[in-house]
């Protein structure tokens, strides 16, 4: 086992759960973690506190780089895998370095999803997925009076609360089909709207963007947007926050020979069609015999469990990813199961 080199792409909760199991189960192995983000493993759900400056960046760190050094784990941050050659068991990094592996775990997470219908406006959208986005969001907020939130996902509700607390005006445009990962019933949509309104946000239901134009901002000397909607409303705002959920980050795997659908197709042992390649977390599309379909997990705890399962199997055990642990979005008493999804547009 001493010759194993486990390489994990990603540095989120699934990756770190896997790292712990791998190091414990194979103390002499080489372990390398490669992350596109140039920041150590952090609590994503605390990004909104970085935006509001209630927390400094280092206060949301789960594990500093020193932890990896102590565990004899090579941590490569800010490095991007461009291509995977499964035959040669080699990763090709963007900065022109090859990294060889014996077993590969893909925990590469997801990218902010922009629905096709809104793709034209992507340059006007501000998103919050990772720390760099949170930094950008925070910087942009400096001259901002009014924010338009479009789409809607689990993160957007919390960010809306944060913005309102920071004294910004928020207009929330809830579109039934774009509230990821759910298709909202009229009843739930109304309930969300009521709660957002109670917090001080203005809410537009069942409408969607049909145009965005960059104009002078609400505050003198700033720039902003003039947004038009299907219901012919004209909305002036300084920033458009777009929250349409995530899509698995798998583009770099297209030429690898792995089976890719929305995410990386793996069996319930989280093993891909290549016996030495596993996937866990947001990027994995996991076969679930119970529903006779693939599913993708959501949430910190699910990702952690999947990371552990993948690592155990990489070590030669036989662990199964069972039904995802239930976790519910609880928004002011409105509870919705949000632990997994398996369809979207």
């Amino acid at each position: 086992m001493a010759s194993e080199h486990y390489v994990i792409i990603g540095n989120g909760v699934a990756a770190n759960a896997a790292v712990d199991i791998l190091r414990q189960g194979d103390p002499d192995s080489r372990i390398t973690v490669i992350s596109r983000e140039f920041f150590p493993f952090y609590y994503r759900h605390k990004l909104r506190f970085v935006i509001s400056e209630e927390l400094q960046e280092d206060q949301i760190v789960v594990r500093p780089p020193a932890h990896y050094r102590e565990q004899n784990i090579r941590l490569r941050l800010g490095q991007e895998v461009q291509r995977v050659d499964l035959k040669e068991k080699t990763l090709y990094l963007k900065h022109m370095e090859k990294v060889h592996f014996t077993r590969l775990l893909l925990c590469c997470g997801g990218w902010p999803r922009i629905p096709e219908v809104h793709y034209t406006y992507r340059h006007h959208f501000t998103i919050v997925k990772g720390l760099s986005h949170a930094r950008e969001f925070k910087e942009k907020l400096a001259g901002v009076k009014r924010v338009l939130m479009v789409g809607g996902d689990l993160v957007s509700l919390r960010i809306t609360e944060t913005l309102l607390r920071m004294g910004r005006e928020v207009l929330f445009l809830i579109d039934r089909d774009s509230f990821w990962p759910l298709t909202l019933t009229d009843e739930i949509r109304t309930e969300f709207a009521e709660r957002l309104t109670k917090h001080g946000a203005e809410v537009l239901i069942d409408d969607e963007i049909t145009g965005i134009e960059e104009v002078a901002g609400i505050e003198e000397g700033t720039s902003g947007y003039e947004v038009t909607t299907r219901r012919e409303k004209r909305i002036s705002c300084d920033l458009v926050g777009a929250f349409f959920g995530l899509v698995p980050n798998v583009e770099f795997l297209f030429s690898s020979g792995l089976d890719i659908d929305r995410g990386i197709l793996v069996d319930d042992h989280l093993q891909s069609r290549n016996p030495d390649v596993y996937a866990a977390g947001d990027c994995a599309q996991i076969w679930n015999p119970a529903i006779n379909n693939y599913w993708v997990s959501i949430g910190w705890e699910n990702a952690r469990l999947l990371g552990e399962v993948a690592a155990r199997n990489m070590l030669g055990e036989s662990a199964t990813a069972g039904a995802p642990k239930e976790s519910a979005l609880d928004y002011e008493g409105l509870k919705i199961n949000t632990s997994w999804w398996h369809i979207y547009d």
Partner: peptide, 23 residues
Amino acid sequence: LYDSKPPNYVEEDEAIAGFIEPG
């Protein structure tokens, strides 16, 4: 400061970009 586009891929641990850490 490093060359981001050397002419060929280099082997593991032969690129300085691979050693850039937080800090």
